[in-house]
Simulated assay, not measured.
Amino acid sequence: MTEERIEEKLASYAQEGKKMFTTSSFQSHSLVLLHLISRFQPTIPIYFINTGYHFPETVAFKDLIAKEFGLNVINLPSQTPRYMQTDSQGRLLFASDPDYCCFLNKTQPLEAILMSHDVWINGVRADQSAVRKAMKEEQPAPHGTVRFHPMLDWDSKAIFQYQKKYNLPKHPLDAQGYMSIGCEPCTRKLDPNMQEREARWFGLNKTECGLHTDLIVKS
């Protein structure tokens, strides 16, 4: 989808009175969508799903980008205190049950946001994983909402070209070899023979946190 088409689609949602929002992990490649929103619909709320496990560099970068782009960034914490996020052995869930950890810290907090909005603007790309490749430009989500995937047909080259065109800043961990940056305990540096999402939950049969598997209605 071209920049012009994205602008038209966002304007169309606005004219229809649709209440829009987006979420962002504030990785370097995430900034393209945020920059587009800042140009076309800057009042759209940006929810930062604050798991409490983010790299300090990510939190600082989020604050920097919010100010530089003039974004309406809203902190979205988990409803479950950290001390309650343990298994029967007392281990934190990110080590023993990462799927449930993601549910408590990412999926569950977003449910209330979906209930109060109409359109979730989501920056997933088809080239990132098999799950995302199967998605459509517009797709139903829970609570009668719609997921809008404006970046679905963009690839890493298109992302790079946009970043270069607008001289977008880069996440400080990029230079250290991190390409897909999530929670600190579940993120590692990318090896040359790994796909982008394989740097997350390394060694586990897991490449998605639930936002793009649980919070979607498959047709």
Score class of each variant (00 low, 15 high):
P42I: 02
P42Y: 03
P42N: 01
T43I: 01
T43F: 07
I44L: 05
I44K: 06
P45N: 05
P45E: 04
P45M: 07
I46H: 04
I46L: 09
I46F: 05
Y47G: 00
Y47P: 02
Y47T: 01
F48E: 01
N50R: 08
N50D: 12
N50Q: 02
N50T: 03
T51A: 10
T51H: 09
G52Q: 08
Y53Q: 10
Y53M: 10
H54N: 07
H54P: 01
H54T: 04
F55V: 04
F55C: 03
P56W: 15
E57L: 10
E57H: 11
E57M: 08
E57F: 09
T58H: 08
T58G: 04
V59A: 01
V59H: 04
V59E: 03
A60D: 11
A60I: 13
A60L: 12
A60S: 14
F61L: 05
F61V: 07
F61S: 03
F61P: 07
F61Y: 07
K62I: 11
K62N: 08
D63V: 02
D63N: 12
D63R: 07
L64S: 07
I65H: 06
I65K: 04
A66R: 09
A66L: 09
A66T: 08
E68K: 15
G70C: 01
G70H: 00
G70T: 04
G70A: 01
G70V: 03
L71T: 05
L71I: 09
N72V: 02
N72M: 09
N72I: 01
I74H: 13
I74A: 06
N75A: 01
N75M: 01
N75Y: 04
L76N: 05
L76Y: 02
P77L: 01
P77V: 05
P77T: 04
S78K: 05
S78C: 12
S78V: 06
S78A: 09
Q79I: 14
Q79E: 13
Q79S: 10
T80K: 15
T80Q: 12
T80S: 14
P81I: 00
P81M: 00
R82T: 15
R82Q: 14
Y83R: 13
M84I: 08
M84K: 14
M84W: 15
Q85D: 00
Q85C: 01
Q85S: 05
T86I: 15
D87G: 05
S88I: 13
Q89I: 10
Q89L: 15
G90P: 13
G90D: 07
G90N: 08
R91H: 14
R91S: 14
L92T: 05
L93T: 00
F94V: 12
F94W: 12
A95Q: 11
A95M: 12
A95T: 15
D97P: 11
P98D: 11
D99M: 03
Y100D: 02
Y100F: 12
C102Y: 07
F103M: 12
F103K: 13
L104I: 07
L104E: 06
L104F: 03
L104W: 06
K106I: 13
T107L: 13
T107V: 15
T107M: 10
Q108D: 07
Q108N: 03
Q108I: 02
Q108A: 11
Q108K: 13
P109I: 06
L110A: 04
E111P: 00
E111A: 03
E111Y: 06
E111W: 04
L114Q: 01
M115N: 04
S116E: 15
S116R: 12
H117A: 00
D118T: 00
D118G: 00
